[in-house]
């Protein structure tokens, strides 16, 4: 267990009391959360990321709290840690889609400026889809295997449709810390506060699409349309980016992810549960694809008129 006194001393707190030992503690300046880093290099990337985003003045983020020595990280006996404010009030997106749009545009813009040699790539090919269902372990329920094989053709169809979209492969892609869940949006002092998770940096727009997929599922089409319209109002956000988001939504990522997870299941019941999860996510993707493409169609009609 890390010594709380050690952290209190480093950050200059006079009061410190564990709420969740090793994770969160209460101070005279509010509740603080500890983020542990296994990789110093990764930690530095995220420090740079949050500072760059925060400096844009778009919204508040869970940036690293400085130590008494003005350092953004602290090396204690257990390893590298950073300290962050804990905010629990969830942000209410309805009617405030513009604020989220600014964040998304800001994330993409900031991502263009970031560099990361080990960033996670998100390439998908027809061959990957075709081979995904080959040699699944016996722990996968035979019915699940059968359904996955049936679904594979539709997954390939999705891939082909995505590939046909007019998206340039030469344009630079942003490297970003995935937004994660809509639940990462918090509210403090009436402002949007985004809690980044410090995940492995990812190249491209896929994670934003995953976020939008959940968004349309939770907040519905109308709010998502307002969000898309607000995104379009962002200076740096053009149709090419929207088309890239659409492409990522059409690609059958949930199919691939499910098959990957199925290789590690231990029981047939677990495989069935994963399949049901894929059903839900597949439908969420359909809803997002419909929403974005319809929005783009509507926009084209307005231009045509």
């Amino acid at each position: 267990m890390v010594e709380l006194e050690q952290i209190k001393g480093a950050y200059g707190f006079s009061v410190g009391e564990w709420i969740v030992p090793g994770e969160t503690f209460r101070t005279e300046k509010g509740v603080k959360t500890i983020k542990w880093w296994e990789n110093h290099h990764t930690m530095n990337w995220h420090i740079q990321w949050r500072e760059a985003l925060d400096n844009k003045g778009i919204c508040l983020t869970n940036r690293m709290i400085r130590t008494k020595d003005h350092e953004m990280s602290f090396l204690c006996t257990k390893g590298w840690l950073t300290l962050h404010d804990e905010v629990t009030s969830l942000f209410s997106y309805q009617g405030r889609e513009e604020e989220l749009a600014s964040l998304i545009a800001g994330v993409i813009n900031t991502g263009y400026t970031m560099d990361w040699r080990d960033a996670k790539g998100t390439h998908l090919s027809e061959e990957v889809i075709k081979h995904a269902v080959v040699d699944l372990p016996e722990t996968v329920d035979p019915i699940v295997q059968s359904i996955l094989k049936k679904t594979m053709d539709e997954a390939i169809t999705r891939f082909k449709k995505a590939e046909r979209l007019p998206v340039s492969s030469l344009e630079k892609c942003p490297i970003i810390d995935p937004l994660g869940s809509v639940k990462n949006g918090k509210e403090i002092f009436g402002q949007l506060f985004w809690s980044f998770l410090g995940q492995t940096p990812e190249v491209g727009y896929r994670s934003i699409t995953f976020f939008l997929r959940e968004y349309v599922s939770v907040y519905g089409k109308e709010s998502t349309n307002r969000l898309l319209t607000a995104l379009k109002e962002e200076e740096s956000f053009d149709d090419a980016i929207m088309m890239r988001l659409l492409k990522e939504a059409v690609l059958p990522w949930e199919f691939i992810k499910t098959v990957e997870k199925l290789r590690y299941v231990k029981t047939k019941e677990e495989s069935t549960r994963l399949l049901e999860e894929m059903y839900d996510t597949w439908e969420q993707s359909r809803a997002l694809v419909t929403t974005i493409s319809t929005w783009l169609d509507g926009k084209r009609e307005k231009v045509a008129n």
Binding site: I147, T151, D153, E154, K161, R164, L246, R286, V289, S293
Partner: peptide
């Protein structure tokens, strides 16, 4: 565009 990118639900497969 919406017609071009539409795809089937699992139930429809």
């Amino acid at each position: 565009l919406s017609e071009q990118v539409s795809f089937r639900s699992i139930e429809e497969v």
